[in-house]
């Protein structure tokens, strides 16, 4: 996957912060996925405008202590495979 890619959430899913779960969730017809903190942090930055590179840069400034590049790329690939992101 190129870091120039601009990922987009599949319109089948809705990303939402859930206070009761203290986490982001993905909601879809008759189902839901509770997201880990890191998955939520990545997905909330996916807005159909930012490239993977922009997202990594933004996350890196929020979490400067560790190199996140490979984690973000792995997650975006997995999320695409899951159908959460448009191919």
């Amino acid at each position: 996957m190129s870091e120039d890619r601009i990922p987009e959430i599949n319109s089948f899913f809705r990303l939402q912060w859930e206070e009761a779960q203290n986490s982001f969730v993905l909601l879809y017809p008759e189902g839901m996925v509770k997201l880990s903190q890191s998955a939520g942090e990545i997905l909330k930055r996916i807005n159909g405008k930012s490239s993977v590179q922009d997202i990594i840069r933004d996350l890196q400034s929020a979490f400067p202590d560790v190199d996140l590049t490979s984690d973000v790329i792995t997650f975006i690939n997995q999320a695409t495979e899951n159908g959460w992101l448009n191919r």
């Binding site: 839901m32 509770k34 880990s36 984690d71 997650f75 959460w84």
Partner: peptide, 14 residues
């Protein structure tokens, strides 16, 4: 890094 966790119970989610 995994996206989902299963532990959602205790609430009337549906």
């Amino acid at each position: 890094m995994v996206g989902s966790t299963a532990n959602l119970s205790g609430m009337p989610l549906w």
